[in-house]
Design a protein around this nucleic acid. Structure first.
Lengths: 196, 196
DNA sequence: TAATTTTAAAAGAACAATCATTCTTTTATC
DNA sequence: GATAAAAGAATGATTGTTCTTTTAAAATTA
């Protein structure tokens, strides 16, 4: 028996994400992908059932990496302000580390390809987040709000800043680079909105 | 001379957006679009130079409609809280009125097709918004923050709520419907973050 | 240890379907 | 009768996927 070349699958995944980010979903064809990965078309089908399966696997892997990075050092019983700040920092670090993966996931999430599957490691993650907020509410650290309103306030500014950063220019059209300092500033203001 | 049928162009645009929202960018082909619009492929090329031109024109039109709706009743010299609330309400109304257009624009913005062109009516719009914030800062109604940080706090929560609404389920996986009341709640909290 | 067989990875050719676009012909209206 | 809209056929390239052949490495035998 001949063993699978682990490099091959990794290269396919990497090139696929690159192509999608640079050329969009209609820029990703199996033939072009094969050429970019310097393998034969049919080899892709050894690792992935078809194009759709490839896309879904890519997204699943990205979500898993995201969850891992986000949960580093996090505990639902943390003090709220420290916990939310850690979340911001972890997510920021993840995005800086894997900008292409993040960009791909944003494209995927906004496309019709996304089919919410509630089996992923996301579920554990979501549960931890909910516990975290419930704790903070009980301890009186934050105001009681409908879940969605709360999350929108807690993360909306963060993701908007990230979008500005990745777009390289905000409202004014002037180049913009996100920094720890700006993140801190936005966070302090966000906390004012969340405290009782 | 035979006159152009105005309905035709309108139908092409409408069907194109429908197809992109439901099947993604790779789901939009000129042949399928022609079939959906019940016209011949070549007729599309009377109204649009090519596929790329079609996509760009669609996006430009969507942006224009958005700006029109957003500016309704707005004046940069308004009291800040009233002005920002009007912005939220106008944008919310636009999204409820044209959900497909909004969805399309989100996909487009997250795709590599987007090429920031600074000639659009967006420029006037951006200038008005900047004036609006500058006024509020001078009057001492709001805290002075870097532009991007400010916009992220002022609109991040809003757009996150809208995303929850359009995704039909937030963090918890429970169906979610945005309402004026929830919007109000989020806005009140957002204002706490922006006041001096 | 060396030779041979087995197995699946990998390549490359082939498939029909579909792609964006253009060319030629028809049709409707001024 | 002039003109351009609209249709439809045709173009060659590219699409996703499969079939056939080759190749490399592990398993087995000697």
């Amino acid at each position: 028996m001949r063993a699978k070349d682990e490099n091959k699958e990794w290269t396919i995944r990497e090139k696929a994400i690159e192509m999608i980010v640079h050329e969009g979903f209609d820029g990703l064809s199996m033939h072009k992908l094969a050429r970019a990965a310097k393998i034969s078309v049919s080899t892709i089908y050894i690792y992935f059932r078809n194009r759709e399966d490839l896309l879904n696997q890519l997204y699943a892997a990205v979500v898993e990496t995201f969850v891992q990075h986000t949960m580093a050092g996090f505990d639902p019983d943390m003090d709220f302000e420290a916990g939310l700040w850690l979340q911001w920092k972890n997510r920021y670090a993840y995005i800086l580390k894997y900008p292409l993966q993040y960009h791909f996931s944003e494209q995927f999430r906004n496309s019709p390809l996304i089919k919410k599957q509630d089996d992923a490691p996301e579920v554990v993650f979501k549960r931890a987040m909910q516990q975290f907020v419930a704790n903070a509410e009980e301890k009186g650290e934050i105001v009681r709000l409908p879940r969605e309103v709360f999350w929108a306030i807690a993360y909306g500014p963060f993701y908007t800043l990230v979008k500005f950063h990745l777009d390289q220019h905000a409202i004014s059209g002037i180049p913009f680079t996100l920094s720890d300092e700006l993140l801190q500033q936005a966070f302090q203001r966000t906390m004012r909105a969340l405290r009782v």
